[in-house]
């Protein structure tokens, strides 16, 4: 039943716990297939790798350093990794501690982002897993057709839907409301797909046993199947959190008032349009840094699940 995909998402039934944190294969075969390279080559290799890695790290380091600089300092020493006169002025302005005529409603952005993210994540985890379970396990007329439609919907590129989404939202009177921001994101096709694949890998015997004990469909789903689905649910939660926290285009076309701006739309308008009032890079970079922190924390705590998610997302096309 499962479509053969080059990369199977790693959201299958729980595996026996690993004894070390290394990937299995690496532990089974610590020794490289070919012998070690010679020392000079190894030194050259490490140098190259460190250079490459700093390309990935330095932009963030410069961002953090600059956010603690003054405007003139940021303009004069853009490369300095330590601020000349460290100041938290940018952060104070963002949080409204320091009075300033030129500031941004950062706390409102933060509140909107948090609200939308929590609602969307909760909705996706519940609805995606319900739909995924039904498509994997329940027999009902139209199931096959629904699955084909799901795959078709997944193939529609997001940017094609910018204007269409606006049309529907304004027709329903949901344009520029929280409902219009949240409801269209409550379900995502890729999430349903991930959950369906997971439920198909769960042995049927457990459900059969519960059924013989007289449990109904909903009870089996809620108290038998869902608890077993923990790894897949965590993956889905993280993907949804990251997706809705970083969502930009949907909020751009579903709202217009400043009161509904999120971290992404607010920051984007500020950065794209704020050229008239000086560059204010410390302020912009501080806002960008703060908006990255929640996802960064999540990433460093649950890296394993991000990695699963990246590979699960790859089946989505």
């Amino acid at each position: 039943m499962t479509p053969t995909t080059p990369v199977e998402p790693d959201t299958r039934a729980p595996r026996p716990p690993r004894t070390t944190r290394r990937p299995r294969r690496a532990r089974a075969a610590e020794r490289p297939v070919l012998g070690r390279t010679r020392l000079p080559w190894r030194i050259a290799g490490y140098t190259l790798i460190i250079a490459l890695a700093s390309l990935y790290v330095l932009p963030f380091v410069i961002q953090l350093a600059t956010s603690f600089k003054t405007d003139p300092d940021a303009a004069a020493n853009p490369l300095a990794l330590w601020p000349g006169t460290p100041t938290a002025a940018a952060y104070q302005r963002l949080f409204g501690i320091a009075e300033s005529h030129e500031t941004v409603p950062f706390l409102r952005w933060l509140g909107n982002s948090a609200l939308v993210t929590v609602l969307v994540t909760a909705g996706r985890v519940l609805f995606d897993s319900m739909a995924g379970y039904a498509l994997a396990r329940l027999r009902f007329p139209g199931r096959r057709l629904l699955f084909v439609l799901l795959l078709a919907v997944m193939a529609v590129p997001g940017v094609v839907l910018l204007i269409p989404k606006f049309l529907v939202l304004s027709t329903f009177g949901m344009f520029d409301t929280y409902a219009g921001m949240v409801i269209p994101l409550l379900v995502d096709a890729a999430g349903i797909f991930i959950m369906k694949q997971f439920f198909e890998s769960v042995p049927r015997e457990v459900e059969e046993a519960a059924r013989i004990d007289g449990a109904g469909v909903f009870r089996i789903y809620w108290s038998v199947v869902l608890p077993m689905a923990r790894p897949a649910l965590i993956t889905l939660t993280i993907l949804s959190f990251q997706g809705s926290w970083n969502e930009f285009t949907h909020f751009l076309v579903s709202t217009q008032s400043a009161e509904y701006e999120t971290l992404t739309t607010g920051l984007a308008r500020f950065v794209a349009g704020g050229l008239g009032s000086g560059t204010q890079y410390p302020l912009k970079l501080a806002a960008a840094a703060l908006s990255t922190i929640p996802v960064a924390i999540l990433f460093f705590c649950f890296q394993r699940y991000f990695i699963r998610g990246a590979n699960a997302g790859s089946v989505k096309e």
Binding site: F248, V271, V295
Partner: peptide
């Protein structure tokens, strides 16, 4: 960099 928002890294 892949998990951060495009808006934030574009600013950088």
């Amino acid at each position: 960099p892949s998990v951060t928002s495009t808006i934030a890294v574009s600013t950088i």
